[in-house]
Simulated scan of single mutants.
Amino acid sequence: MIRHIVSWQLSEADPARKAAHAAEIAARLEALVGVVDEIRALRVGADVAGGANWDVVLVADFDDLDAVGRYQVHPAHQAAGAFIRSVVSDRMAVDIIV
Score class of each variant (00 low, 15 high):
residue 1 M to G: 15
residue 2 I to V: 14
residue 3 R to H: 02
residue 4 H to S: 04
residue 4 H to P: 01
residue 6 V to W: 11
residue 6 V to E: 04
residue 7 S to W: 11
residue 7 S to A: 13
residue 7 S to Y: 09
residue 7 S to E: 02
residue 7 S to N: 01
residue 8 W to N: 05
residue 8 W to S: 08
residue 10 L to H: 06
residue 10 L to S: 05
residue 10 L to Y: 06
residue 13 A to E: 13
residue 13 A to W: 10
residue 13 A to K: 15
residue 14 D to L: 05
residue 15 P to F: 09
residue 16 A to S: 10
residue 16 A to E: 07
residue 16 A to C: 06
residue 16 A to K: 12
residue 17 R to V: 00
residue 17 R to S: 03
residue 17 R to F: 03
residue 17 R to M: 04
residue 17 R to C: 03
residue 20 A to T: 07
residue 21 H to G: 01
residue 21 H to E: 00
residue 21 H to L: 03
residue 21 H to S: 04
residue 23 A to D: 07
residue 23 A to T: 04
residue 24 E to Q: 14
residue 24 E to N: 12
residue 27 A to G: 10
residue 27 A to P: 02
residue 29 L to M: 15
residue 29 L to Y: 15
residue 30 E to Q: 12
residue 30 E to Y: 06
residue 31 A to E: 03
residue 32 L to F: 08
residue 32 L to M: 05
residue 32 L to N: 03
residue 32 L to G: 05
residue 33 V to H: 14
residue 34 G to T: 01
residue 34 G to M: 07
residue 35 V to T: 11
residue 35 V to A: 07
residue 36 V to A: 09
residue 36 V to G: 02
residue 38 E to T: 11
residue 40 R to C: 12
residue 41 A to C: 03
residue 43 R to K: 12
residue 43 R to M: 07
residue 44 V to M: 12
residue 44 V to F: 10
residue 45 G to T: 01
residue 46 A to Y: 07
residue 47 D to E: 08
residue 47 D to L: 06
residue 49 A to G: 14
residue 49 A to K: 15
residue 49 A to S: 15
residue 50 G to T: 00
residue 51 G to R: 11
residue 52 A to F: 09
residue 53 N to I: 00
residue 54 W to M: 14
residue 54 W to V: 06
residue 54 W to S: 08
residue 55 D to E: 05
residue 56 V to F: 08
residue 56 V to T: 00
residue 56 V to S: 02
residue 57 V to A: 14
residue 59 V to Y: 07
residue 60 A to Y: 08
residue 61 D to N: 03
residue 61 D to S: 11
residue 61 D to C: 11
residue 61 D to P: 04
residue 62 F to D: 00
residue 62 F to G: 06
residue 63 D to P: 04
residue 66 D to H: 12
residue 67 A to V: 08
residue 68 V to C: 10
residue 69 G to D: 04
residue 69 G to H: 07
residue 69 G to W: 09
residue 69 G to P: 01
residue 70 R to N: 00
residue 70 R to T: 00
residue 70 R to Q: 01
residue 70 R to Y: 01
residue 70 R to K: 07
residue 70 R to P: 00
residue 72 Q to I: 02
residue 74 H to M: 04
residue 75 P to Q: 01
residue 76 A to D: 06
residue 77 H to A: 10
residue 77 H to R: 10
residue 79 A to W: 08
residue 80 A to R: 02
residue 80 A to E: 02
residue 80 A to K: 01
residue 81 G to V: 06
residue 82 A to E: 15
residue 83 F to S: 04
residue 86 S to A: 14
residue 86 S to Y: 09
residue 86 S to V: 03
residue 89 S to Y: 10
residue 89 S to D: 13
residue 92 M to F: 12
residue 94 V to I: 14
residue 95 D to A: 13
residue 95 D to H: 13
residue 96 I to Q: 05
residue 97 I to Q: 13
residue 98 V to D: 05
